[in-house]
Amino acid sequence: MNDHTRRRVTLAQTLASVYAPHPEVACVVVGGSVARDLADARSDLELGVFWHSPPTDDDRAALLRAGHVRHPRSFPYFPDEDLWLDQGLVDDVRLDIIHRTVQGVEQGIEAVVTRGEWSVYALNALAVLQYALPLTSMESLSGWRERIAVYPPVLRDAVIDAHLEPTPTVWLRQHVERGEWILLYERLVRDQKHLLMVLAALNGVYLPHAEFKWLAALEASLAWAPRDLTARLAAVLSGPPREGVEVLHGLWEETYDLVARHLPEVGQTAKARRWLNQLAAPSVEP
């Protein structure tokens, strides 16, 4: 555990001693870069609080005061992510306190694992359950980890199917020739995210960060991936645009090879490769 992580874990333990005694709190965990021992001097502290019933505004405000959180801000319920968020400072460390209900977590697991109903936020929420550092009772967390331990085929197939067709390379080359930089980089970023979604699903890995941070750590968790994945993804955006387009094309070709080799039952792979390699840009792009 590095020094930045250790300091933030100590702060989290102090906060957990404030939140855990509340009768409606089931468990408290640390997430984010601290839980993965990736914290640096600028890292915030992400505390997860799981409730038996939805937290009230009064409870949240009282706990922030009891925890001596400075400059507190509380946000209303976020339905897309099924959470409540408080922010502030402890010492000089930025703090995010993410509140979820036990029922909400269990319903989310059921939707993703049983029915393959996914979103980036839902996949990230399951990843957090896997790597979070528990600060209180492990009972709820252990049960959730057992339920998500095996990445289900229904989810794998749904995620791969939704992300297997990137922008045709000929379109990207055309954007470079025309100097259409905003459209080019918008598509390069989107297609990189889609490629990572395919690779994560292929390897049975829930998305560790909803905004695609920690790519080196993600690459290390992938048994099947293009060589030098993180460095090549960086080159797509940091090098000359024309070269970046070709680097991304190569990454997709290697990813199709991996899907075809390890999941031959995915019939969309050949169709997606033809889409990537179409020979001429249509007069009107969709």
Rank of each mutant, 00 (worst) to 15 (best):
G143F: 00
G143E: 05
A149G: 07
Y151E: 02
P152W: 03
L155V: 03
D161A: 10
D161N: 11
H163D: 07
E165H: 09
P166W: 02
T169V: 14
T169A: 12
W171E: 15
Q174C: 10
E177I: 09
G179R: 14
G179I: 08
W181M: 15
R187L: 12
K193E: 08
K193Y: 09
H194D: 06
L195R: 02
L196Y: 01
M197H: 04
A200P: 01
A201S: 01
V205W: 06
Y206G: 02
P208S: 07
P208M: 06
E211K: 10
F212D: 07
W214S: 00
W214H: 01
A216N: 12
A225N: 02
P226D: 07
L233N: 00
A235Y: 10
S238I: 05
G239R: 14
P241Y: 07
P241T: 11
R242L: 14
G244N: 04
V245I: 12
E246L: 10
V247F: 00
W252V: 04
W252D: 01
W252T: 02
E254A: 12
D257S: 12
L258E: 10
V259P: 02
A260T: 06
A260S: 09
H262E: 02
H262V: 05
H262Y: 13
H262G: 05
P264Q: 11
Q268F: 01
Q268I: 04
A270D: 12
K271P: 04
R273Y: 02
W275Y: 15
Q278T: 15
L279I: 10
L279H: 14
